[in-house]
Amino acid sequence: MRINYDFSDLEVFLAVKETGSFHQAAKRLNLSQSAVTRRIQKLEIALDSVLFERTTRAVKPTLAAKRLQSKAEAILEDAQETTIAMRDESVAFAHQRGAVITVAIVPTVVARLFVPAIQSFRNSGFETRIRLLDSSANEVAENVASGEADFGVCSIPTLEPSTEFTSIFDDKIVLALPASHVFAERDAIGWNELEGTTLILPARGTGNRLLIDDTMAQVRLSVIWSYEVNRSTTALELVEAGLGFALLPHSVFQSTVTKNVVTCELKAPKIIRPIGLLTRVGQSDTPAITALKDAILWAV
């Protein structure tokens, strides 16, 4: 069954019922008397019931009107409560979004970029809470593209047309090796010298691994890895235990304290991973998000 009346019709009905007058109801609702009459007629047609007996002296509610009154009041009260609740939730959501910044970031640049940036951000007077989604570059890109993060800091340039990448600095991939190894005294090591060594590589499909595989293909080097790990910190622990060499971003050594591990640069071709801000195209930032982005850009 189709309902052919709305909340405004019920409001007019209650005003006429309470005032006993079409004229007084019109004044209360700031409507013309003809508009009140039309709404009552519309309601009567929709309910197939006469609601008021009109005479030149008075407007008397019918039995149908008396039955409708409590139901109309309940309907309007419920609608009002729903409207208030929805508005409160919207305000709460807007406040929460403004009070929390979600940043997706690769863990290896937290010490170099994020720590000094957040210190500057706090010194500027911002007390906004910050949620860090520290994960791989692929996941950072996905979090930004999906809107899960307000922006990201990662090593993967734009993969989606909905995102854009702003470069901050270039991070070299270096060789981490035990301090006791004969190579530890070298300033640089050639790629061909890695043949026959025990290598610890990032997991396949990660941003760092893609860069490493591309370079190995370029120098026609076929190296068999012995260990494959997801986290740079795990690779360092293996190196520290003397289990092999790891190819890692230089920024890792600014965020992790290691014992008995040294780094050597790799001879040409060098591997450089670009670090930058990843944002959604057309996104409207709050002042706090803008300030945090600026602090990260100036933290280098």
Rank of each mutant, 00 (worst) to 15 (best):
Val281Arg: 15
Thr263Arg: 09
Ile105Met: 05
Pro161Tyr: 01
Leu292Arg: 09
Ala184His: 02
Asn260Phe: 02
Arg220Tyr: 10
Val174Trp: 01
Pro269Lys: 05
Ser124Cys: 00
Val59Asp: 03
Glu53Leu: 10
Glu240Leu: 01
Ser180Arg: 06
Thr286His: 06
Leu210Thr: 06
Thr19Cys: 06
Ile118Gly: 03
Ala137Cys: 07
Ala58Cys: 00
Leu248Ser: 04
Thr215Cys: 11
Ser284Lys: 09
Arg2Glu: 14
Ile156Met: 15
Val300Ser: 11
Asp6Lys: 10
Val261Met: 02
Asp213Ser: 08
Gln80Arg: 15
Asp285Glu: 09
Leu248Ala: 12
Trp191Gly: 02
Gln33Trp: 05
Thr62Met: 07
Lys293Gly: 07
Arg129Lys: 10
Thr82Val: 10
Lys71His: 09
Phe52Cys: 07
Ser49Ile: 12
Leu43Trp: 10
Phe114Leu: 15
Asn208Tyr: 13
Ala92Cys: 03
Ile296His: 04
Ala295Phe: 07
Ile156Gly: 09
Ser70Val: 06
Pro161Ser: 13
Glu240Met: 08
Leu47Pro: 05
Asp150Glu: 03
Gly152Met: 04
Ala117Cys: 02
Pro178Asp: 03
Ile296Thr: 10
Arg97His: 14
Arg220Trp: 06
Val229Ser: 04
Val229Lys: 05
Val262Ile: 05
Glu240Phe: 00
Leu31Phe: 14
Ile200Asn: 04
Asp88Glu: 14
Ile118Asp: 03
Ile272Thr: 12
Leu133Ser: 04
Pro116His: 10
Thr197Gln: 09
Gly205Thr: 00
Ile224Gln: 09
Thr102Glu: 04
Lys71Cys: 11
Ala65Ser: 12
Leu247Cys: 05
Val262Glu: 05
Ile105His: 09
Ile156Arg: 15
Ile168Asp: 13
Arg39Phe: 00
Ala104Pro: 13
Gln119Lys: 11
Val36Asn: 03
Gln218Leu: 15
Thr158Met: 04
Phe245Pro: 02
Asn138Cys: 06
Val257Thr: 15
Met1Val: 14
Ile173Tyr: 02
Val144Leu: 01
Thr206Ala: 11
Asn123Met: 02
Arg39Val: 00
Val252Lys: 09
Val300Phe: 07
Phe169Lys: 11
Ser222Asp: 15
